[in-house]
Design a protein around this nucleic acid. Structure first.
Lengths: 218, 218
DNA sequence: AATAAATTTTAGTCTTGTCTAAAAAAATAA
DNA sequence: TTATTTTTTTAGACAAGACTAAAATTTATT
C-alpha cells in the first residue's frame, strides 16, 4: 500500500498535529532526524496521494485518509508492544525499536488475530491507548507532573519519552504505570520537582517531570 | 545489517545451490521474477560484501558467511510460520506471504523468545525443518511421490510448492503432513500417478507428484 | 518600513535497486 | 570448426528517498 518511509512521515505528522492546526516542515524534520528539504519532497508526495494537505511555506496537516492510515499504524505499533511484553518477556524499554519495524508489516488478519490473542488490550506498556480495528480509541487527558500544583496527586498513566535511557531511569526509581505520585515542591527557577511515590521521595528534573503523565486524583 | 533485497537474494541462492556447485544468474532471475541484469548487479554487491563468490559468466555460490545469513533468515521464516498457524489461527496456505515480510525483522531477542514461546519446534507447517540458533537443522532425505516405485509407501513429510493454490488443492483431497501415501500405478507417458491415501484413491499429475515429499516406509 | 534572521523550497547530486537495449561470452548445432 | 542460439554482462536510464547549497519566502527586529 504505502512505503515504509511514507508511513513513518504519516505517523510523525499525526503525533505532531495534535492540537495544532498546521505542522511545520522543520518540526517534522527535527522529530525524524532528517533534513527539511527531504520533508518538503515527501509532503508533496503525500499531498499527491491525498494523505495530507500541504500549503507551501505554511505547513501540512493529514487528510481524513491520512488520519485513518496513522491510527492503523499506531494500532499495530501498540499491539506489537503488548505482544512483546506479555508473550515474549520484553521489558518496556526494549519494545520500541522492534515495534518500529513490526508496525509496517501488512496483513489485516495478522493484526486482528494478534488483538484477539492478547485479549483486546486497551493500553500499551507505556500507558498509551490502542485504537480498535475501526481506528477509535480513548483520548486521555494528560497532565504532566510539571503542571501539578503543590500537594496535588495522581496516578502515572503514560510517558511521553519512550527512549530506553528514560525508561531505565524510571525503572531504577521504581516508577511504573500505576505508580501514585504526589508533588511535594516545585523549584520556581529551574522547574525541578520534589515528588513522592509509594516507594520514596525523589527530586526529578523539569525534563523528566514534563515526560510523566498522570490521571489526577483528589 | 543487510537490506531486505540482499536478504531475498541470499535466500534464493541458498535454496538453488542445494546439490549444485554454482547457481546461474538466469535461475536466480527466474525464481525471483526479476531480470538477469539486476541479478548480476546484486551478485557483484554480495561478492563485495563477502556473502557470495561470483565468477562472471559461470555462476555464484554463497560463502560460509552467506550460508550463515541464509539459515538465519530461514529460521526466522519458519518460526514465524509456526507462530501464525499455532497462535494466530492461520491455515498452512495463508502463512507464506506474511512470513516473507516477517523474516526480515531484525531482533535476536525477538526470534529466540519466539522459539521458546513455541516450544522449540523442529518443523514448520509445511514439514520443513527449522534451523536452531546456531543454524543447524536436520536435513531430511526427500523422496518425491513421482520417484516411488509401484507399490511403495511413505508418509508425507513436506511439500515443495507452498503456493496457496497448491495447498488448497491438497486440503481439498484431505492430504496433509503425516498422511500415508501409496503409489498404485504410474503412467509412463505423462507421469500421472494413481495414489492411495488413508482417505481415498486419486490420480495426481506429475507436477503434483513432484511436489509431494515422503519419508519412505516398508 | 527596512533589514536581519529563520524557515522553507528548489535545484542538483547521490545511493539503492530496478529496467531495457546492446555487447560479450558460452553453449549448441550444423 | 564455423555459425547460431542462449546466457550473461555492460551501459545507460529511471524511481524513491535522502542530502547539500543556494534561492525564495516568512517572521522578527530595529
Amino acid at each position: 500500500m504505502h512505503s515504509v518511509s511514507e508511513e513513518n512521515y504519516i505517523k510523525t505528522i499525526y503525533h505532531l498535529q495534535e492540537g495544532k492546526n498546521l505542522v511545520s516542515t522543520n518540526d517534522i524534520a527535527g522529530r525524524m532526524s532528517t533534513k527539511a528539504s527531504s520533508v518538503t519532497d515527501m509532503l508533496k508526495k503525500l499531498a499527491e496521494k491525498n494523505l495530507a494537505e500541504y500549503i507551501p511555506y505554511k505547513g501540512t496537516r493529514l487528510t481524513q485518509n491520512g488520519i485513518n492510515c496513522a491510527t492503523q499504524i499506531i494500532r499495530k505499533h501498540r499491539l506489537w508492544e503488548v505482544f512483546l511484553v506479555e508473550k515474549l518477556n520484553f521489558s518496556w524499554d526494549e519494545v520500541h525499536e522492534v515495534a518500529e519495524q513490526l508496525e509496517h508489516i501488512q496483513s489485516r488478519k495478522l493484526i486482528d488475530e494478534m488483538d484477539q490473542l492478547l485479549g483486546f488490550p486497551k493500553y500499551d506498556p507505556h500507558g498509551d491507548p490502542i485504537p480498535d480495528a475501526q481506528g477509535n480509541y480513548e483520548k486521555i487527558t494528560k497532565t504532566a507532573v510539571s503542571q501539578l500544583e503543590k500537594g496535588q496527586k495522581g496516578i502515572l498513566t503514560g510517558v511521553l519519552d519512550t527512549s530506553t535511557r528514560f525508561l531505565k531511569y524510571l525503572d531504577k526509581h521504581q516508577i511504573e504505570l500505576g505508580t501514585p505520585i504526589e508533588l511535594i515542591e516545585k523549584e520556581s527557577f529551574d522547574g525541578t520537582c520534589h515528588i513522592k511515590t509509594d516507594q520514596k521521595e525523589i527530586h526529578i528534573s523539569k525534563t523528566t517531570a514534563d515526560n510523566l503523565y498522570l490521571k489526577k486524583i483528589s
